[in-house]
Write a protein that binds this DNA or RNA. Structure first.
Lengths: 335, 335
DNA sequence: CCCTTGCGGACACATCTTGTCCGCAAGGGA
DNA sequence: TCCCTTGCGGACAAGATGTGTCCGCAAGGG
């Protein structure tokens, strides 16, 4: 029963920050039971806040729009989140971000309540992002157009430069922008091909709304993207069976979303890789080979030759190198 | 005692509507005693609302700034930068970030000039970050403390859990926070060891300023960090000579900062790797082996055995697998 | 048909809120 | 300087309220 008003404000803030919340989620976030959440929702409704609740499997709570919310304040965590996000985002992914985010941070600092100002200023001045050269750069303008079209359910047209193909003009129904590991993807339904597609935003150019609305379809964006990435059929692919438990194999790939794992019996499983370059394939297969003996199910002759060649090199080099082995370096320390 | 949350909202609304109110007036309006008004004011303050009270004959309550945020004068790029950063940062790296950044985004939207509001709202609602489970989580509170100490040149103390070692208490001169590829590092000078150190922030806990200032030293943070990471002496290390140009080798590692490359003649170079696990070593050596024949200069017997074993497996599997090779999959298309 | 989700009643118990005391500190005016 | 007004906050007892744990019901999706 602790701090009911504060909890109501937090609930309001939560409802405002996301489309839909289930009672369970809200209960967890607020640290109370679901029953109390229902009572809080009831209270908000009594205060004329239009909280809509829908039943069923896809049910949840959402906040109606157009309401005059009380002056919600950024709390400490949120201030830090802003600063940390802006600094971190300066590191890459979207072109021109470093300047924009730093100047935005400076302006935000001016406007924030005095109590939060030191937090923001400290993170802004003390932290620095190190840019990574290899990252594909996304045009913020394209991102903005795509976001607007997603929100308004407007069909969007753009040029898409597929892998080593000429750019083609596309007209799709955009549903969601997804970001995973600094890369941005557009999840869209392509009416021409009657199927879902994920587009890499850094390969999109000349995006513009065609000012024609569509009725949105239902899709689980994150799940679709992850599956799409895992099952992507890139130019080079390999399928192997490895003598290791499926769980062990999947845990090896945590965070590196590549490869479909299919269990075969208790102690072995099939894995299909796919990658843009044979080199990427190689490193993944090598990691897999560390888990247990493997047999090849499918591979193009080129990749097979490459991998077996590299395997031979490794075997020979490290078999001979054995006598020179030592274990220096334990005396020096790095954090 | 009826409906405390509602009364607090009414009080907030009253304070917003007029410059100054006396406790007596507020008590009458709200239908409670003055004592209760004082308690309510206290409550609002606990919720971070800056309610100022002045004593004396002309005393009364006023609502401070922070609730009347002047419209934020961001330009388009900056607005998008804020939205994109906050969404992207929800994906990982700092614990509790997803909630904080989304609610911060919603609140910031309210104080933006009307022209920019759709931009922010569109990105906020259309974009979603997919969290990555493998990432180490940084405590935002620790980040805030470190940032403050960097800024104020205050010596900071914390517990540091090194790799597979017991946490040790450190006292260092913090200089900069650096972020690279979702990971946060603290660059600091360690007076005890009389040298610079980089600490991974996710391994830092119980950070607190010791309230003692130091005179900052000069250092190029980003350069130092990159060099530090590249030359880090982790538990497992390997040194090989590969017959490939140094430039070719370094370009292979763009974005993945590991390994020191030393040219040896025109067409070969020495590379030293270091990693936390033999498996990580393996994948990097494998990628290197794709570039050309290599010889081993240093390796512990264990890693050498692992790598040669895996090499043998790869060579055998993909040599036999050759006849089953085919090139399916060109007919299906993925973007 | 089943499962999930939201909705709301009942009840016991812990907890908080309120009003009423009290004294203290700070500012302004006589 | 004195006095009044104003905000501030501690203590306390009585009463109201919030909470968790039950329960069953309705609605939506697979």
């Amino acid at each position: 029963m602790r701090d009911l008003p504060g909890r109501l404000l937090r609930l309001l803030s939560l409802l405002q920050s996301r489309r839909e919340w289930s009672g369970r989620e809200l209960a967890d976030r607020l640290g109370v039971t679901e029953r109390t959440v229902r009572r809080d929702v009831e209270r908000l409704r009594a205060l004329d806040y239009p909280v809509a609740g829908t039943t069923g499997t896809a049910g949840g709570y959402r906040l109606g729009s157009g309401t005059h919310l009380p002056p919600l304040q950024l709390d400490d965590d949120e201030a830090i989140a802003v600063a940390v996000s802006l600094v971190g985002a300066a590191g890459g992914g979207v072109s021109g971000m470093a300047d924009s985010s730093m100047s935005a941070l400076a302006k935000l600092e001016q406007v924030l309540p005095a109590r939060l100002r030191p937090q923001l200023a400290a993170v802004g001045s003390a932290a620095e992002a190190i840019p990574r050269p290899g990252l594909p750069q996304v045009d913020p303008g394209v991102l903005a157009v795509l976001a607007r079209c997603c929100r308004n359910h407007e069909i969007v047209a753009f040029d898409y430069a597929g892998r080593s193909r000429e750019p083609t003009r596309r007209r799709v129904e955009p549903h969601q922008l997804l970001t995973l590991a600094w890369r941005w993807y557009l999840l869209a339904f392509d009416p021409d091909r009657d199927d879902w597609r994920t587009f890499r935003v850094d390969r999109i150019s000349s995006a513009a709304s065609v000012l024609h609305r569509f009725t949105p379809r239902v899709v689980d964006g994150p799940t679709y993207l992850v599956e799409s990435l895992m099952s992507a059929q890139y130019q080079y692919s390999v399928e192997v069976t490895v003598e290791a438990a499926a769980a062990e194999v999947t845990s090896t790939f945590e965070g590196v979303v590549r490869g479909i794992v299919t269990p075969v019996g208790d102690s072995s499983c099939k894995v299909r890789f796919s990658a843009d370059t044979p080199g990427m394939l190689l490193t993944q297969v090598a990691a897999l080979a560390a888990l247990g003996p493997l047999t090849v199910d499918h591979a193009t002759p080129e990749t097979a030759a490459l991998i077996s060649g590299v395997g031979e090199r490794l075997a020979r080099a490290f078999a001979l190198g054995n006598d020179q082995a030592d274990s220096e370096g334990d005396d020096t320390e790095r954090e």
